[in-house]
Amino acid sequence: MIKEYKQHAVNGHESAFLRSGRMFRGFFVKTVSFVGYTVQYGCIAHCAFEYIGEFVSCSGPSMEPTITNHDVVFSERVSRHLCRIQKGDIVIAKSPFDPKMNICKRVIGLEGDKVCTSGPSDIFKTHTYVPRGHVWLEGDNLRNSTDSRSYGPIPYALIRGRVCLKLWPPHSVGVLAESPNGGRIL
Protein backbone atom coordinates (compact mmCIF):
# COMPACT_ATOMS: atom_id res chain seq x y z
CA MET A 1 0.00 0.00 0.00
CA ILE A 2 2.70 2.42 1.02
CA LYS A 3 4.85 1.22 -1.80
CA GLU A 4 2.06 1.78 -4.27
CA TYR A 5 1.46 5.28 -2.96
CA LYS A 6 5.15 6.09 -3.34
CA GLN A 7 5.13 4.79 -6.87
CA HIS A 8 2.18 7.00 -7.69
CA ALA A 9 3.91 10.08 -6.29
CA VAL A 10 6.97 9.43 -8.37
CA ASN A 11 4.81 8.99 -11.42
CA GLY A 12 2.98 12.24 -10.76
CA HIS A 13 6.20 14.11 -10.30
CA GLU A 14 7.64 12.65 -13.44
CA SER A 15 4.64 13.49 -15.58
CA ALA A 16 4.63 17.09 -14.39
CA PHE A 17 8.31 17.36 -15.27
CA LEU A 18 7.68 15.80 -18.67
CA ARG A 19 4.76 18.12 -19.30
CA SER A 20 6.81 21.22 -18.56
CA GLY A 21 9.57 19.83 -20.78
CA ARG A 22 7.11 19.27 -23.61
CA MET A 23 5.72 22.78 -23.16
CA PHE A 24 9.20 24.23 -23.32
CA ARG A 25 9.97 22.19 -26.41
CA GLY A 26 6.73 23.31 -28.06
CA PHE A 27 7.60 26.94 -27.36
CA PHE A 28 11.10 26.39 -28.72
CA VAL A 29 9.80 24.75 -31.89
CA LYS A 30 7.28 27.56 -32.39
CA THR A 31 9.95 30.22 -31.98
CA VAL A 32 12.33 28.51 -34.38
CA SER A 33 9.65 27.99 -37.01
CA PHE A 34 8.52 31.64 -36.65
CA VAL A 35 12.09 32.85 -37.14
CA GLY A 36 12.53 30.47 -40.06
CA TYR A 37 9.39 31.69 -41.79
CA THR A 38 10.38 35.31 -41.18
CA VAL A 39 13.80 34.71 -42.73
CA GLN A 40 12.27 32.81 -45.65
CA TYR A 41 9.68 35.45 -46.50
CA GLY A 42 12.19 38.25 -45.94
CA CYS A 43 14.52 36.61 -48.41
CA ILE A 44 11.70 36.09 -50.94
CA ALA A 45 10.73 39.76 -50.56
CA HIS A 46 14.35 40.82 -51.05
CA CYS A 47 14.62 38.75 -54.23
CA ALA A 48 11.32 40.14 -55.56
CA PHE A 49 12.34 43.75 -54.91
CA GLU A 50 15.86 43.20 -56.19
CA TYR A 51 15.19 41.19 -59.35
CA ILE A 52 11.54 41.77 -60.37
CA GLY A 53 10.48 45.26 -59.42
CA GLU A 54 9.54 47.73 -56.73
CA PHE A 55 7.13 50.55 -56.04
CA VAL A 56 8.63 54.01 -55.91
CA SER A 57 7.10 57.27 -54.78
CA CYS A 58 8.55 60.13 -56.82
CA SER A 59 9.10 63.64 -55.61
CA GLY A 60 10.46 66.75 -57.22
CA PRO A 61 9.66 68.68 -60.37
CA SER A 62 12.31 67.36 -62.74
CA MET A 63 10.11 64.89 -64.64
CA GLU A 64 7.01 67.09 -65.07
CA PRO A 65 4.67 66.70 -66.89
CA THR A 66 5.23 62.95 -67.27
CA ILE A 67 5.61 62.29 -63.56
CA THR A 68 4.47 64.91 -61.07
CA ASN A 69 5.21 65.24 -57.39
CA HIS A 70 4.01 62.35 -55.13
CA ASP A 71 3.20 60.01 -58.00
CA VAL A 72 3.67 56.31 -57.31
CA VAL A 73 5.26 54.30 -60.09
CA PHE A 74 6.30 50.68 -60.55
CA SER A 75 9.89 50.17 -61.60
CA GLU A 76 10.87 46.80 -63.05
CA ARG A 77 14.42 45.57 -62.68
CA VAL A 78 14.52 42.77 -65.24
CA SER A 79 15.55 44.90 -68.21
CA ARG A 80 18.35 46.50 -66.19
CA HIS A 81 19.80 43.08 -65.32
CA LEU A 82 19.45 41.92 -68.94
CA CYS A 83 20.93 45.21 -70.27
CA ARG A 84 17.76 45.99 -72.24
CA ILE A 85 17.51 49.68 -71.33
CA GLN A 86 16.71 51.66 -74.47
CA LYS A 87 16.68 55.29 -75.46
CA GLY A 88 13.49 57.01 -74.29
CA ASP A 89 12.99 54.78 -71.23
CA ILE A 90 12.47 56.45 -67.86
CA VAL A 91 14.85 54.97 -65.30
CA ILE A 92 15.49 55.20 -61.58
CA ALA A 93 19.19 55.51 -60.82
CA LYS A 94 21.39 56.17 -57.82
CA SER A 95 22.59 59.73 -57.73
CA PRO A 96 26.30 59.80 -58.61
CA PHE A 97 27.06 62.28 -55.83
CA ASP A 98 24.95 60.77 -53.06
CA PRO A 99 24.41 57.00 -53.41
CA LYS A 100 21.60 57.02 -50.85
CA MET A 101 19.50 59.29 -53.06
CA ASN A 102 17.68 58.09 -56.16
CA ILE A 103 17.00 60.09 -59.29
CA CYS A 104 14.29 59.51 -61.87
CA LYS A 105 15.21 60.62 -65.40
CA ARG A 106 14.77 59.72 -69.05
CA VAL A 107 17.55 57.98 -70.98
CA ILE A 108 18.55 60.27 -73.85
CA GLY A 109 21.64 58.46 -75.06
CA LEU A 110 23.32 55.10 -74.62
CA GLU A 111 27.03 54.40 -75.00
CA GLY A 112 28.43 55.74 -78.25
CA ASP A 113 25.46 58.00 -78.97
CA LYS A 114 25.79 61.65 -79.86
CA VAL A 115 23.88 63.86 -77.42
CA CYS A 116 23.18 67.56 -77.22
CA THR A 117 24.65 69.05 -74.05
CA SER A 118 23.15 72.52 -74.38
CA GLY A 119 19.70 73.55 -73.21
CA PRO A 120 16.77 74.06 -75.60
CA SER A 121 17.02 77.85 -75.55
CA ASP A 122 20.77 78.09 -76.09
CA ILE A 123 21.80 79.57 -79.40
CA PHE A 124 24.98 77.55 -79.81
CA LYS A 125 24.38 73.81 -79.76
CA THR A 126 27.13 71.72 -78.23
CA HIS A 127 27.38 67.99 -78.71
CA THR A 128 29.30 65.19 -77.09
CA TYR A 129 29.53 61.41 -77.29
CA VAL A 130 28.52 59.13 -74.42
CA PRO A 131 31.53 57.02 -73.30
CA ARG A 132 31.51 53.24 -73.04
CA GLY A 133 29.41 51.80 -70.21
CA HIS A 134 27.64 55.09 -69.55
CA VAL A 135 24.20 56.60 -70.23
CA TRP A 136 23.02 60.17 -70.69
CA LEU A 137 20.04 61.08 -68.50
CA GLU A 138 17.81 64.14 -68.73
CA GLY A 139 14.63 65.17 -66.98
CA ASP A 140 11.53 65.97 -69.02
CA ASN A 141 11.33 69.38 -67.37
CA LEU A 142 14.46 70.78 -69.00
CA ARG A 143 14.25 74.10 -67.21
CA ASN A 144 14.13 72.61 -63.73
CA SER A 145 16.20 69.48 -63.73
CA THR A 146 19.68 68.62 -62.52
CA ASP A 147 20.82 65.91 -64.88
CA SER A 148 23.61 64.81 -67.19
CA ARG A 149 23.79 68.31 -68.65
CA SER A 150 25.31 69.45 -65.36
CA TYR A 151 27.18 66.36 -64.14
CA GLY A 152 27.88 64.45 -67.33
CA PRO A 153 27.13 60.86 -68.29
CA ILE A 154 26.59 58.38 -65.46
CA PRO A 155 27.71 54.72 -65.35
CA TYR A 156 25.12 52.18 -66.49
CA ALA A 157 25.61 50.20 -63.26
CA LEU A 158 24.05 53.04 -61.25
CA ILE A 159 20.68 52.39 -62.91
CA ARG A 160 18.33 50.57 -60.55
CA GLY A 161 15.28 49.95 -62.69
CA ARG A 162 13.06 51.03 -65.56
CA VAL A 163 9.79 52.78 -64.75
CA CYS A 164 7.08 50.92 -66.64
CA LEU A 165 3.75 51.73 -64.94
CA LYS A 166 2.18 54.65 -63.14
CA LEU A 167 -0.09 53.53 -60.30
CA TRP A 168 -1.10 56.76 -58.59
CA PRO A 169 -2.97 59.16 -59.01
CA PRO A 170 -5.95 57.06 -60.24
CA HIS A 171 -6.84 59.18 -63.27
CA SER A 172 -3.48 58.62 -64.92
CA VAL A 173 -2.91 54.92 -64.23
CA GLY A 174 -1.15 53.17 -67.07
CA VAL A 175 1.95 53.34 -69.18
CA LEU A 176 3.91 56.56 -69.18
CA ALA A 177 3.77 59.18 -71.90
CA GLU A 178 6.44 59.69 -74.50
CA SER A 179 8.97 62.44 -73.98
CA PRO A 180 7.44 65.89 -74.51
CA ASN A 181 10.69 67.09 -76.02
CA GLY A 182 11.36 64.21 -78.37
CA GLY A 183 13.81 66.25 -80.41
CA ARG A 184 16.38 65.75 -77.64
CA ILE A 185 16.76 62.08 -78.53
CA LEU A 186 19.04 62.16 -81.53
Binding site: V39, Q40, G42, C43, I44, H46, C47, E50, Y51
Partner: peptide, 14 residues
Protein backbone atom coordinates in the same frame (compact mmCIF):
# COMPACT_ATOMS: atom_id res chain seq x y z
CA UNK B 1 13.83 25.04 -53.49
CA UNK B 2 11.74 28.02 -52.42
CA UNK B 3 13.68 28.20 -49.18
CA UNK B 4 17.18 27.57 -50.48
CA UNK B 5 17.27 29.82 -53.54
CA UNK B 6 15.95 33.06 -51.97
CA UNK B 7 18.05 32.57 -48.84
CA UNK B 8 21.19 31.97 -50.90
CA UNK B 9 20.54 34.94 -53.16
CA UNK B 10 19.85 37.21 -50.19
CA UNK B 11 22.98 36.10 -48.35
CA UNK B 12 25.08 36.69 -51.49
CA UNK B 13 23.48 40.11 -52.00
CA UNK B 14 23.45 41.39 -48.44
Amino acid sequence: FFVAVPVTVTVLDR
